[in-house]
Simulated scan of single mutants.
Amino acid sequence: MITREALYQLVWNTTGRSVAAAFGVSESYLIRVCHKLEVPRPPRGYWQKFEVGRASEPPPLPPAGPVTEKCWSKSTRPQPPYVPPATKRRPPSKPAKQGEPKHPLIAAAERHFQRAGPGADGCYLKPRKKLVVDVTASRTGLAKCLGFADRLFRSLEGLGHRVVIAPSFALTRIALDPRQQPPPGSGRVWSPLRPTVVFVDGMPIGLAVAEVGETVAMQYAGHGNFITKEEFKRKKRFGATWERERPLPRGKLKLTAYSPLLGVPWTREWLETAGTPLDDGLETIAAAIESGALELLASLERAGR
């Protein structure tokens, strides 16, 4: 059993790795314990500054609130800090009401995507502006992708997590291609200049929304164009033709959350299935992103960054 006061002294007098090892738990577990007891922890880079005498003074231990846990033992599994029902904001699971303002990133990107033409791949839109939200969609799937991204961003910000375009090139976008097995020579899919990120307690998590390209049998229709077999039959085309499988956007969404920090890998994906839209899992997605931020924080501490 350890009190809040004793834990506070430990985490500010030795590294998180050492404290976790002393209790026989992982660093990520120790982070959850500190959150539960509302004990402040050293920021990233604190111990490097401490070694050269440049570390700032530790913040005082805040007074325990009426629902704050006063102590912890290893036999007690830590839970997230309690949030009173009156102040807890849950992610919205329904579309925005008529007239409700869209998230600023979506409102700014909408006009650029609407004026965009297809990119080198011939299917996905390629806006002229590169500093826009990370959404990859065809003309027919654009409204669905932007609508889901809008609801996701507002859900995360409702929980207190800011969603922005990465403020600098220090954060990088991982290689992403929404197409399944793109054929050689099919062209690269457009990607933004900087990643879209959500900051969870200061830790960035990259977010990318895409319309998945499913492999479809298509028919050559002349002039270098391929169309679906159904469209080919409907137009009753004649002449030399052949069949080829190509990835074609079909309106199914995929969300990728990832680490935008070089050398710190972490990725989670959610793929829409028939009868189960991604909107139905917004609360689960938000919880997984919050958990991922803790995992990244623990990885950085293990690496001494």
Rank of each mutant, 00 (worst) to 15 (best):
L248H: 00
P249M: 12
P249H: 02
R250L: 15
G251E: 04
G251I: 00
K252S: 13
K252R: 14
K252M: 12
L253M: 04
L253Q: 00
K254W: 02
K254G: 08
L255F: 03
T256V: 10
T256Y: 01
T256E: 12
A257P: 04
A257F: 02
A257L: 08
A257W: 01
A257D: 06
Y258H: 05
Y258P: 03
Y258N: 04
S259I: 02
S259E: 05
S259R: 06
S259T: 03
P260V: 06
P260E: 08
P260I: 03
L261M: 15
L261A: 09
L261V: 12
L261P: 07
L262D: 07
L262W: 01
L262H: 06
G263P: 10
G263Q: 13
V264M: 11
V264D: 10
P265Q: 12
W266I: 06
W266M: 10
T267Y: 04
R268D: 15
R268C: 12
E269A: 11
W270K: 11
W270I: 07
W270F: 11
W270P: 06
W270Q: 12
W270L: 09
L271D: 13
L271W: 04
E272Y: 01
E272G: 03
E272C: 07
E272V: 00
E272S: 00
E272R: 05
E272I: 03
A274G: 06
A274W: 04
A274P: 01
A274H: 01
A274L: 08
G275W: 02
T276M: 14
T276S: 15
T276G: 10
P277S: 09
P277C: 10
L278W: 01
D279T: 04
D279C: 09
D279F: 03
D280R: 14
D280Q: 15
D280W: 00
D280Y: 05
D280V: 08
G281C: 13
G281N: 11
G281W: 02
L282N: 04
L282H: 05
L282R: 11
L282D: 09
E283I: 06
E283G: 09
E283F: 02
E283V: 08
E283S: 15
T284H: 15
T284S: 12
T284Y: 08
T284V: 08
I285N: 10
I285R: 08
A286V: 00
A286E: 01
A288R: 12
A288G: 06
A288P: 06
A288C: 09
I289R: 14
I289S: 10
I289F: 07
I289W: 00
E290V: 08
E290K: 15
E290I: 02
S291Y: 05
S291A: 15
S291W: 00
S291P: 04
G292M: 13
G292R: 10
G292P: 08
G292V: 07
A293L: 08
A293R: 04
A293K: 06
A293F: 02
A293S: 13
A293Q: 06
A293E: 05
L294I: 09
L294N: 13
L297R: 14
A298K: 04
A298P: 04
A298V: 00
S299E: 11
S299G: 03
S299A: 14
L300K: 11
L300Y: 01
L300F: 05
E301P: 05
E301D: 14
E301C: 06
R302E: 14
A303M: 15
A303Y: 07
A303F: 07
A303N: 09
